[in-house]
């Protein structure tokens, strides 16, 4: 059973690599990559902690609800660990 995760809904300013359209959405971890330095600090030349980078797979139904073009199609994105919370 693939691990289910939800993307945080926070909306900080700055160089964030978590697309706004995926915030608050739940998906499953497709694979884990990295660790890679946190781009939110790296972009400003600050010391950056390394985080695992998860490839998270969302269904189009999860991302777009009733407006999904084809509900079972999928959207994969790379999300840093500090943006994810585990879902039971």
């Amino acid at each position: 059973m693939a691990e289910r995760v939800r993307v945080s809904t926070r909306m900080p300013i700055g160089h964030v690599r978590t697309p706004a359209y995926l915030r608050g959405k739940t998906g499953v971890i497709e694979r884990t990559l990295g660790p890679f330095p946190d781009p939110e600090r790296l972009a400003y030349g600050q010391e950056a902690q390394k985080f695992p980078l998860r490839r998270v797979r969302f269904t189009m139904a999860e991302v777009w609800g009733d407006q999904a073009e084809t509900p079972d199609d999928t959207l994969d994105a790379e999300i840093y660990e500090h943006w994810l919370e585990r879902v039971e």
Binding site: R17, T18, P19, L33, G34, F36, P39, L53, R55, T70, D72, D73, T74, L75, D76, A77, E78, I79, Y80
Partner: peptide, 12 residues
């Protein structure tokens, strides 16, 4: 056919 879209958001 299932469509899988890959959003290249970070290091890949």
């Amino acid at each position: 056919t299932t469509v899988r879209v890959h959003d290249s958001t970070a290091d890949m």
